[in-house]
């Protein structure tokens, strides 16, 4: 008797990524650089978020060729993004052998009302959240890992910080509540009551919570770790920098030793220019990726 796709197996996979960096890559060469630098996984994409933002139009699941190329190039896990609510893209990625699926607001949503029923899949899912209610709705649907939404492709950390702080402070609030306050809190957050009970018992989310969306420097990665992230996703940051190899290594080291400021200082020396970045208030509201999904 052997059971695949159980919560323990799916959530456990994310537990193994803790303290690590997951990097966006668009081909085998970048995937190898990421693996060599010590990334714990790669996200196979057709375009990194900043290019998606620049290109406009509809962003979809990557060409299966890219996923297969990346799977063939590295031995670390390979993740891939499906559009929010796109049941079939997710099934295709699962069939192609993606180790984790990101139901991602970086792509253009396929469904503005319903997210994917992630419990129905054998492959685990990661989803973005801006607050505890959103995180728990996704976990209720079967997400085995949560990440902040941040504002992808901006190189601006402010939204990821906002989302991580929000989730952490809401967890603390729930932990400090008396049992009879929980149902009302569940109603206010729009979150499953049972998951609030679990948070109160364990003092933390039932799945790991990574930082994503706007991490552009080693110090950004260390900042997110010190705010309580279990690990970080770096999207456009690595391969939009001047020296991807060094940059990738520096981010990995800063994530491991996020409290060693002298080391982070050394790592940050002469790294060249980080991606330029965008001030959030300059992005018109309809173009804010974090507002996709609910």
């Amino acid at each position: 008797m052997a059971d695949t796709g159980t919560d323990r197996v799916k959530r456990g996979m994310a537990e193994m990524q803790k303290g690590g960096v997951i990097m966006d890559v668009v081909n085998a060469e970048q995937a190898k650089i990421a693996e060599e630098a010590g990334a714990v996984a790669v996200m196979a994409l057709e375009r990194v978020p900043s290019d998606i933002r620049a290109a406009g139009g509809v962003a979809r699941m990557a060409d299966p060729d890219i996923l297969e190329e990346v799977i063939g190039a590295v031995s670390i896990p390979v993740m891939a993004k499906a559009r929010i609510g796109h049941i079939v893209e997710a099934r295709v990625l699962e069939a192609l052998g993606a180790d984790y699926i990101d139901e991602s607001e970086v792509l253009t949503p396929a469904d503005e009302v319903y997210h994917i029923d992630k419990n129905a899949y054998t492959v685990p899912f990661v989803c973005g959240s801006r607050d505890l209610g959103e995180a728990l709705r996704r976990i209720g649907e079967g997400a085995a890992m949560i990440r902040t939404k941040g504002e992808p492709g901006t190189g601006n950390i402010v939204e990821a910080v906002r989302h991580m702080r929000m989730v952490q402070s809401q967890i603390k609030k729930v932990v400090g509540m008396s049992r009879d306050e929980l149902m009302t809190e569940a109603k206010n957050l729009g979150a499953p009551y049972e998951l609030l009970l679990s948070i109160q018992e364990n003092g933390k989310l039932p799945v790991v919570n990574f930082a994503a969306g706007g991490i552009a420097t080693p110090a950004d990665a260390a900042l997110m770790m010190s705010l309580g992230s279990d690990g970080v996703f770096v999207g456009s940051g690595v391969f939009k920098s001047e020296e991807p190899q060094r940059f990738a290594r520096a981010i990995v080291e800063a994530t491991t030793h996020y409290e060693d400021y002298e080391l982070i200082g050394q790592l940050s020396k002469g790294l060249g220019t980080a991606m330029k970045g965008i001030e959030i208030s300059n992005i018109p509201e309809p173009e804010r990726m974090q507002d996709r999904g609910w």
Binding site: M1, A2, T4, G5, M13, P77, D99, P124
Partner: peptide
């Protein structure tokens, strides 16, 4: 390494 396949083949047992 990865002798049992990719993540969708991961499992639990006694």
């Amino acid at each position: 390494r990865n002798a049992f396949g990719r993540q969708k083949e991961s499992f639990e047992t006694e």
